[in-house]
Structure formats: C-alpha cells, structure tokens
Simulated scan of single mutants.
Amino acid sequence: MELVIDKVSKKFKNKLAVNNFSVSLSNGIYGLLGPNGSGKTTLLRIIADVVNPTEGNIYLDGKSKKVLEEDYRDLIGYMPQDMGFYKNFTPEKFLYYVSELKDIDKRVAKEKIVELLKLVNLENDKDKKIGRLSGGMRQRLGIAQALLNDPEILILDEPTAGLDPNERIRFKNLIANISKDKIVILSTHIVSDVEFIANEILIMKDGALIGKAIPSEFTKQLRGKVWSRAITEDELYELDSKYKIVNTYRDEDSIVVRIVGDEKPLECAKAQEPNLEDVFFYYFSHKAEGEAL
C-alpha cells in the first residue's frame, strides 16, 4: 500500500498552515515531529479527509482520494487531538455508537469492542460514565475508537497526551504490535513517543516538510553539534539566553548542560553522541510556543 501526499497546502485566511507538503508513505510507523503551531494537526485532518486542502491532492495506490471517496474513508482510523465525547455515555456505549457511524456489522462490532476494551485496559471501566473517567482513560478510549474498523491507515494526533509513564509504554507496545500491514502516522512534539517505534521520522516546520529519514540518519547528521559541560548555577541563566540547551542535570556541586549548535559553545565542552531529542532541539527552539493549527 502506498499513500502519496502530493503538493498539499492549506490556507486559513492569511495563515498558510500547510505549505506544499509532499511525501510518499508505505506500510510502517511514521513519527510526525514538530512544535505546536507547525501545521501537524491540519495535515492530519487533510489525510483523514476531515478538511480539504486548498491545493494538492492525496493518492492511495495511485487513485485519487477524491475518486475513492467512501472507499478511502473506510480505510481510515483517526484519533483527533481533541476527542469529542458524550459524558453520559459509557466507554462501551460510545464504541457501539461509533461502530454504527462507521457502519460496522453489529456482530463484528460486538466482538471488536470486547477485544479493544481489553486492549486499551478499559474492560473493567466499560460501564462507567465517560465524564467520570480520567484524562488518560479518555485518551485510551480515543485510541480504541480509531481501531474499531481495523483501519489500514491509522492517524493519531498527540495520542499520548494525558497518559502516565506506564500508559505511554503500553501505548507504544500496542502501536508496535498492530502496525503490521498498516500505515501509522503518529503526530507528536514529544520525541520519546516515537524515538524507538517509528520506522521513519518526518520533521515539519512552518507547515512544510523539512526532513524525512530513519532516526539514525537524523542523529548521524548531528554528530559534532552536540556538547556538554559542567557549569555553576550562576552561569546557567546566561548560557540559556545564548544557546539551545537540551537539558540539564546536577552532578555533585555543578550543573551539567547539554547544548546543540553548529559551533562548539564553550571551552572544555565535550562532544556527545546525538539522540533524536537533540535533533528536535536543533531544528526547533525549546521555547517555541503557540496553538496547534
């Protein structure tokens, strides 16, 4: 299966949210990385056929999404960033409701709902009202509804928001296990969500695709651009205003900073082996702010 996003752009009034985005995807897990406001959510809505692009098109195995219409949508499983739930529904009732919207046979839906409630660890909470569930539990329910029709293209927008560390691990294992024979697009600004499960990383900035590669290729490009040095607490503020500091940690009486940049930032700074978090901070300021488009 091949999904081709061909020169897709989306403009809202004077804001170009997606800018001439082109990429070809086959079966596997793709991590879509970018800061808030980079256009990730708008791109996923276009792929999920929720909104239409201003320009460009999407093709599945050479056929236009516009021609495929319902046949295309039948292959999509979509978890939006902000799931709309009926608070008085129970998880089980909500999944039955979504299965009817997706026109899934009732007998098939019954078996699938039992399977998915177990898969996302909600089987013991299936009769609770959604309004009483925690944010993490509602997030897991959102993942379950996206899987109801056993989609071939699974689109997940910030799926781990609200999950605790154990739930994050469970989610990543879940995605790794179900990704066979599927295209999975996972949008996030949290690098650890995709670092070890994504086959390829797509980096998005200002609505455009600025890089596509396997994680090790991105980290290889950053060799010689990641440094660490022990400093005093008084030096931290000054350095933070001058350099991109990925993280800091205390080591006895000093603070060790990890910095990314094209030039060696300080005397006695030691070169470090890059990781994907360094890549993210290299391309995007860690102070980036704004709402997702």
Score class of each variant (00 low, 15 high):
3 L>S: 04
5 I>E: 05
6 D>P: 02
13 K>V: 12
13 K>R: 15
14 N>I: 01
15 K>E: 11
15 K>S: 12
16 L>S: 05
18 V>H: 03
18 V>F: 04
19 N>M: 05
20 N>A: 07
21 F>E: 09
22 S>Y: 08
22 S>G: 11
23 V>D: 04
24 S>P: 01
24 S>G: 11
24 S>Q: 13
25 L>M: 10
31 G>Y: 03
41 T>M: 08
44 L>A: 07
45 R>L: 01
48 A>G: 09
49 D>E: 14
55 E>I: 08
59 Y>Q: 02
60 L>I: 12
63 K>M: 13
66 K>C: 12
74 D>P: 01
74 D>H: 14
78 Y>G: 05
87 K>D: 15
88 N>W: 12
88 N>S: 14
89 F>L: 13
98 V>I: 15
104 I>Q: 08
105 D>H: 07
108 V>T: 15
108 V>D: 12
108 V>S: 13
109 A>M: 09
112 K>I: 11
112 K>R: 15
112 K>Y: 10
116 L>M: 10
124 N>Y: 14
128 K>E: 12
128 K>H: 10
130 I>F: 02
130 I>D: 01
131 G>K: 03
131 G>D: 04
133 L>C: 02
134 S>N: 11
137 M>Y: 10
141 L>C: 06
143 I>A: 07
144 A>Y: 00
148 L>Q: 06
152 E>T: 09
154 L>Y: 00
158 E>W: 02
162 G>D: 08
163 L>W: 02
163 L>D: 02
164 D>R: 05
167 E>V: 03
170 R>I: 07
172 K>A: 00
174 L>N: 10
175 I>H: 09
176 A>L: 12
176 A>V: 00
177 N>M: 13
178 I>L: 13
179 S>Y: 05
179 S>R: 07
180 K>I: 13
182 K>D: 08
183 I>N: 04
187 S>Q: 11
188 T>G: 08
189 H>E: 09
190 I>D: 06
191 V>L: 09
192 S>M: 08
198 A>R: 03
199 N>W: 01
201 I>Q: 02
210 I>D: 07
211 G>C: 06
214 I>R: 15
216 S>V: 10
219 T>H: 01
225 K>C: 02
232 T>E: 13
233 E>H: 12
233 E>I: 14
234 D>E: 15
234 D>L: 13
238 E>R: 12
242 K>I: 07
246 V>T: 11
246 V>E: 00
255 I>T: 11
264 K>I: 11
265 P>Y: 05
277 E>I: 05
280 F>L: 06
281 F>E: 01
288 A>F: 13
289 E>Q: 11
292 A>K: 15
293 L>Y: 14
